[in-house]
Design a protein around this nucleic acid. Structure first.
Lengths: 137, 137
DNA sequence: TTAACAAATGCACTTCCATTGCACTTACTA
DNA sequence: TAGTAAGTGCAATGGAAGTGCATTTGTTAA
């Protein structure tokens, strides 16, 4: 079990107080968060810092971006051993129409999608919308 | 073969010059278009009119909205007999990373996606990204 | 230990798209 | 043909993403 510091260093990211806090915040959240969510959680910090921190995390494949169709990009931590940078290993996301939360269904891999001749598939984005387990019970 | 006028009337949409033009524009285009695309095609018309026309078409299930991950919503005509309002009849979309165009692969239905217990699937959004037939040749 | 440099942070500002309020015009209906 | 409802155009707003620059913090080497 790596500490967060070790994890960041292993990805050549400088360890700062802000980054540790943001990482912890993401780790505690089970769901994907928007920039505004982070902003609300850290009112003292500047939006730009949060924005750039997330972008750094994204580049270094610590978080991945999710486009769940709400129009607002969300972010979630990549799993241990997640290969978000490798386009063939994509999991799907579930967006709850009731509570508006989006979660990663990491162990649900996306089936192979056939495309017509002449088309080359590089990447797949799959979002299932409906009612999540919390809201349906 | 219905005329456009008949189609609009059958959906209880008042026929106006603007709406006929926009419908024709969408019908000619093989790809999904953004609001800006329409705006550029009709420079004389106001943005708001185009916006509201599209919204009307959307409500009456004449066009469907596509979220291809570019951050800009696109629109495309629903097929004859398309059941965009019925959530089980969804086709997938292909977004070309080269020419940036998005097309409907109407005859490619989305496979049934299994979700964990407690989750209820109502709707699926599937976008495949890659290189389209025109760009790959 | 400190000087020097690089990276991180904060503030202000900009841009782009989506959306709305209100006035005016056009099209149906009695 | 008058009256009303819907459609259209102009102006303005709001939210999210992104950028430039000055300041602060952290790292490295003399």
């Amino acid at each position: 079990m790596k500490t967060i510091e070790q994890l960041l260093e292993s990805k050549q990211i400088r360890v700062t107080a802000m980054r540790l806090l943001i990482y912890k915040f993401l780790a505690e959240k089970k769901v994907a968060v928007t920039l505004s969510d982070i902003e609300n959680a850290f009112e003292k910090a500047d939006r730009t810092t949060l924005y750039r921190t997330i972008k750094t995390f994204e580049e270094k494949v610590i978080v991945h971006q999710i486009d769940d169709g709400t129009g607002i990009t969300k972010y979630a931590l990549c799993e241990q051993g997640c290969n978000c940078d490798i386009k063939t290993d994509l999991h799907l996301h579930f967006h709850c129409n009731n509570c508006n939360e989006t979660i990663c269904l990491t162990d649900h891999k996306i089936p192979q999608i056939k495309v017509p001749d002449g088309f080359v598939s590089e990447n797949v984005n799959l979002v299932v919308k409906g009612i999540c387990d919390k809201c349906s019970s």
